[in-house]
Computed example of a mutant assay.
Amino acid sequence: MKRKKQIKSLILGVLTFVVVIGFAFPFLWMLLASFKTQAQIMSTDHFFLFKPTGQNYANVFSEYDFLKFILNSFIVAAGSTIGSLLLGLPAAYAIARFRLQGLGLVILIARIIPGITFLIPWFILFSQLGMVDTYSSLILSHMLVGLPFIIWVMISFFEGLPTEIEQSGLIDGCTPTQVFLKIVLPISGPGIITSSLLSFIFSWNNFMFSIILAGDKTRTLPVAVFNFMSYSEINWGALMAAACIITLPVLIIALVAQRFIVSGLAAGAVKG
């Protein structure tokens, strides 16, 4: 019996190692390539042994004004996340407490429909309103992804909260709005943090809406990275450096907030 457990543990360890290597290899290649010259990247003889250079990162910030793109992405991601929270939290609470399954189904359908379906109507609408190349159009379009996600995460979380806590607040003289703001939201911290962080990451990495609705003033990071690829050549060094810059904030968020993400998703998956 003990030997069988050891064999199973060994097999599990080997499989885990293979999976981790498979997922980690592209990130390792990206990181190493960001410190290589174009010739070193194209050569198979310089994968690990090469003289690193920081010129790619210097070019990204000096020639492509990447600080502007970082600021644009942060404004759009933060704005869409805040807007989705302001609308999504009350909506999720109402659906959970009043059992509005029909409304929840509509929101689920909106989440399932591919975003490209909304792209042409969205572009025509914003063109008629003169809102193309504005932060407002990008924030509203990114909320198409973030808002349904926040609602669906928080519905199951609110359903798992004991109603006795809310009833005690009503007995103490609180209005339903005060119960929601002063009692429900403070104890829903893990779910709110989880949904807001994932919504922020979705918006940060969104390419489809930005390539159509963003212009020179509001161009975000994924679109800026796309510009490193031309018809005749791909600047692999600068492209990999830019990809590392885009990945770094998301990686930091994931490492710092992983405890909240895991606890929030687990709490939202359990109904009391």
Rank of each mutant, 00 (worst) to 15 (best):
I183A: 10
L198I: 15
G173V: 13
V179Q: 08
A214H: 09
G173H: 12
I187C: 09
W204R: 02
L185N: 09
W204K: 05
K217H: 07
K217T: 13
G191I: 00
L181I: 15
K217G: 03
S210L: 11
S196N: 10
D216E: 12
P176Q: 07
L197S: 14
I212N: 05
T218G: 03
T220H: 10
S210H: 11
I192G: 00
R219W: 05
D216C: 02
R219Q: 14
I201T: 04
P190T: 12
G191L: 01
L185P: 03
F200M: 06
D172T: 09
L181M: 12
P222Q: 14
F180C: 01
F209V: 01
S195A: 15
I171G: 06
P190R: 09
I212R: 12
I212Q: 04
K217E: 11
S203N: 02
S196R: 01
K182H: 14
S195N: 08
A214V: 08
F180T: 00
S203Y: 02
V184Y: 01
D172Y: 14
F207I: 09
F202H: 09
I201D: 03
T220S: 09
I211Q: 11
T177E: 07
I171P: 03
R219P: 03
S199H: 05
L198V: 13
R219Y: 04
I171M: 13
N206E: 14
L221M: 15
K217V: 12
S203A: 14
F180I: 01
L197M: 15
C174T: 05
I187N: 07
I212V: 15
K182N: 13
P176S: 11
I212A: 14
N206W: 06
